[in-house]
Simulated scan of single mutants.
Amino acid sequence: MNTAIARSSSRFAQFAQAGALPLVLLAAWQAWAMSLPANSPAPAPLKVVATGVDLIASGGLPNALMQSLGRVALGFLVALTLGVVLGVLMGSIRSVRDNLDPIIESFRPIAPMAILPIAILWFGTGTPSALAIVGYAAFFPVLVNTVHGVSRVDRKLVMAAQTMGIPRTTILTRVVLPGALPSILLGSRLAMGVAWTAIIAAELAVGAKSGGGGSGGIGQMMFVFYAYNIDLNAIVVCMIVVGLVALLIDRIFRAAEGRLLPWRH
């Protein structure tokens, strides 16, 4: 009983310590905002909360968020599939790696937003352009980490399986992929974070290129609030949502990693 109480007190103390600084900063922000003229467009915590409630109640924010999440999920799945397949080939077949590595390393440093003009020219200002940006951004973390994981699988295990006459596909699914799984999961987690960042930037840029009437999503919602409504409180709401979603995505991937790789935790 005493142990449970001590644990609860310790957790409460940790929570209070972690939340003290944010509360102080919010209070200082609110005090600064209250010192400004009543018609000032500067964002304030209370105004941000009220604006967030209105955006949620109207359905605009949830719809935009779901639209962005759908694009991220689809683009990430495409990048994950291509990255894992190509990564396994490059990691296990030296000739494939030697031929493709220079091409991959030539494109990898190019920022996703650098291909936006090409994406718009090829796919227009709708969802396909956003998906192209997301897929491009998420592909390289998955590929590089998959190649790294496959290349580090103990060759003795593969050779032992070959000696016993196990088919190559079985070796791939039972030896190579499980051995490379930690690296693949790490690459997937990094890729999802990059994909979420890329979709926001892509929607912002596509919205600007299309005059606000492009692909939608929370990124374009931010552009509309900036370019047309000049609503800084709404922009802050979108920024908070973007950050919270990124945190939630990271926690989901960490939980999945803990389930699939319990020996590493």
Rank of each mutant, 00 (worst) to 15 (best):
V48M: 01
R155M: 02
W263G: 05
V134A: 06
Q67M: 13
W32K: 07
R97F: 11
R71L: 13
L204R: 02
D54I: 00
V153R: 09
T127R: 13
A33N: 08
V84N: 02
L82C: 12
A33C: 07
G258R: 02
T170F: 05
W263R: 09
G217I: 01
W122A: 14
R94W: 06
A64P: 04
P62L: 03
G70L: 08
I110F: 07
G83P: 02
I104R: 08
R94V: 12
G124N: 05
E257A: 03
N229V: 05
V242S: 15
L261W: 03
M34D: 12
L121T: 08
P62E: 03
Q162N: 10
S129H: 10
G19Q: 10
R259K: 07
T173N: 09
P112H: 08
Q30R: 00
R152Y: 05
I184V: 08
G149I: 11
A256I: 05
D101H: 08
N2L: 12
V175C: 02
Y228D: 14
T81F: 14
L131G: 12
A198E: 00
A202P: 01
H148G: 10
A42S: 02
L116W: 01
I133S: 03
N2C: 06
Y228C: 12
S35I: 06
L89H: 06
P102K: 01
G135S: 06
A16C: 14
M66P: 01
S106Q: 06
